[in-house]
């Protein structure tokens, strides 16, 4: 691990100034991803600016009836928060599906969003990787691809963003509050992460020095909506998603009046399934419509050798989740 300086930020503005002024500086939050990557030699910052003691650990109501989640709220605390469990159960479910008890106790809300989009080759410094070492090539393409992208990938990178929490936040139309050199701005979570394109080394649209201070949730979906988060994985617990689905639907008179669907484990970013949502609008509730919606979204899927299974897996998971939500019984909430 390369040597680095360490400074504890005392104010958000001070933190932004510290990192902005130094190209090799990075923020340290829960550390569950960064410390691992420091040790693996994937990143080599010369300054860690610790934001853990900034007063960003509150969950509070917003004026419009939504919630403002401080960037430092730990994943376990957010999942257990009464307002999240009652009004945003899909988010609580997603948080609880991620990582392990110990990691959820350390990981923060902003840190979860800003964990690296990654794959096993990104984490193995002995292999070429365009994300870690731009221009060196992609070892995943033609390699072991079980956990890799089927949507929105490029010839340079097929890694996926592993967050569960972010998938639910995208479905909920959450935004992040970002403090930068030039003040505060708001970015939809859906637009926070990038597709790899020609620059897989960039996971997000944030600029150097930008600090996420909060995630803002709009008011709860409310009466008539049913929602759930389902994660399909190789182990029953403590494993990344092969495919995950965050979905909410509102049914009126046997038709889908409105829906929200996003997918995890399939792309370089949490994937909002807009085409599926469009296909569902006004559709008669039933497997035929659900399969058509999933098909509309996955028509653009381009798996690589070894992860073709994810396309039918995603389709079936979407259909199964919608069926569960449309039915009056089932385990959804």
């Amino acid at each position: 691990m390369k040597p680095f300086d360490y400074q504890r930020a005392t104010t958000p503005d001070g933190a932004v100034a510290l990192v902005s002024d130094r190209p090799g500086a990075v923020y340290l939050a829960g550390g569950t991803n960064l410390v691992d990557h420091l040790r693996l030699g994937i990143v080599g910052p010369d300054l860690l600016v610790d934001v853990n003691r900034l007063p960003l650990d509150e969950v509070g109501a917003t004026e419009d009836g939504g919630l403002r989640i401080g960037a430092n709220v730990r994943n376990s605390d957010l999942a257990a928060h009464p307002a999240i469990r009652r009004d945003y159960p899909m988010l609580a479910q997603a948080l609880l599906a991620g990582a392990s008890g110990q990691i959820r106790n350390a990981a923060t809300t902003a840190g979860n969003l800003l964990q690296r989009t990654r794959c096993v080759y990104f984490q193995d410094v002995t292999t070429p990787c365009n994300k870690r070492d731009p221009g060196s090539g992609c070892t995943a393409i033609g390699g072991y691809t079980r956990y890799h992208a089927i949507l929105g990938a490029s010839e340079h990178c097929i890694a996926v963003h592993p967050s569960d929490m972010a998938v639910a936040m995208v479905a909920l139309d959450a935004t992040v509050a970002v403090l930068g050199r030039n003040g505060e701005r708001s970015i939809p979570v859906e637009e926070l992460h990038r597709l790899p394109g020609d620059h897989p080394e960039r996971d997000t649209v944030l600029e150097h020095g930008d600090l996420i201070t909060a995630v803002v949730l709009p008011p709860p979906l409310g009466a008539g909506w049913r929602c759930t988060y389902r994660k399909v994985r190789d182990r029953a617990s403590y494993a990344f998603a092969l495919v995950s689905v965050a979905a909410a639907i509102r049914v009126e008179d046997g038709r889908v009046a409105d829906s929200r669907i996003s997918l995890g484990g399939v792309a370089h970013k949490p994937w909002r399934a807009v085409k599926a949502e469009d296909a569902l609008r006004g559709a008669v509730v039933g497997d035929e419509s659900f399969a058509a919606a999933a098909g509309a979204e996955l028509a653009a899927a381009s798996p690589v050798e070894g992860n073709e299974f994810k396309v039918p897996m995603a389709r079936r998971t979407i259909v199964s989740v919608l069926r569960e939500l449309a039915g009056q019984s089932g385990e959804s909430r």
Binding site: T32, D36, I103, N105, A106
Partner: peptide
Amino acid sequence: GRRMLSCLALAVA
């Protein structure tokens, strides 16, 4: 008071 992974915690923090 909370269970944590000490390998992923930097002592200085």
